[in-house]
Amino acid sequence: MDLILQQMVNAVSLGGIYALLALGLAVVFSIVRLINFAHGEVMTVAGYGIWIALASAWPVAAAVALGLAVAILAAVSMERVAFRAMRGADVTTLLITSFAVSEIIKVLFQNGISARPVPVVLPAWMSGTLDLGPVRIGVIALISILTVALSLVLLSVFLRRTVMGLAMRAAAEDFPVVRLMGLRANHVIALAFAVSGILAGVAAVLWVAQRGSVDPLMGAAPVLKAFIATVLGGLGSLTGAVIGGFVVGAVEVCLQGFLPQSLLPYREAISLALIIAVLVWRPDGLWPAEQTSRS
């Protein structure tokens, strides 16, 4: 029983990170039809920001703030420098552009800092555990779950209650008409990247807290999982991205925890096979984006 609860906590805290990353991918994709494979590097940049801040003995809150700030900056600059020039290009061109951006950033970190992981020293209280009734939960796991929940609530309020949030939802349906309402295309797109940047920044904070190190490839694996999550949830659907993120996290944790020893090396293959099976059953994903009634 304890083990199952423990695994559920693990699944939610890992799945939450995938959900945040998948949301960032989905927000950008829904508006500019770009699958941003450099999204993982936004997370990496944020990770190094946190590392530098903590290594300079900044308080944790300031380090987190710096991580989020550099994530926003990284995402918005990517759009400005690389993707804006490619606006309106076909999906493949955009995809290749994002691979290029991703590779460039990785190499910069490998050569500029180190190809090897650098440890991030977290305050001692973070490595503790709390006893909540029958379950013992790690402080970091608890923070992760609460942070993910708060991020999802804040994003949902933003998308429902502010004009720019409405504009982003509307732009996912019909961008030219959003421009007819007097909203600048560049602003809406920059905002989409900024939102994806914040989400990647939060994911980076949680990832670093859970792993205790940063390295140039730290964003690559989770963003691949997040990409799988967006496809599983329904490409371009925000709700789908969140659901997909949690499903991918849960599958990963379950296979890790409950597979017999002899099958463990195949867990990635098994999890991908499961996801392919889901997509065969529901090709548009678990929770596809709303179809617009465009005539």
Partner: peptide, 25 residues
Amino acid sequence: ALVPEGRRLFAGLTVAENLTLGGAV
């Protein structure tokens, strides 16, 4: 202001949200 052919409302947004965006300027 253009009322486009086929109306092109934001189908997934509510009536009030469509109006709000119309006044976004």
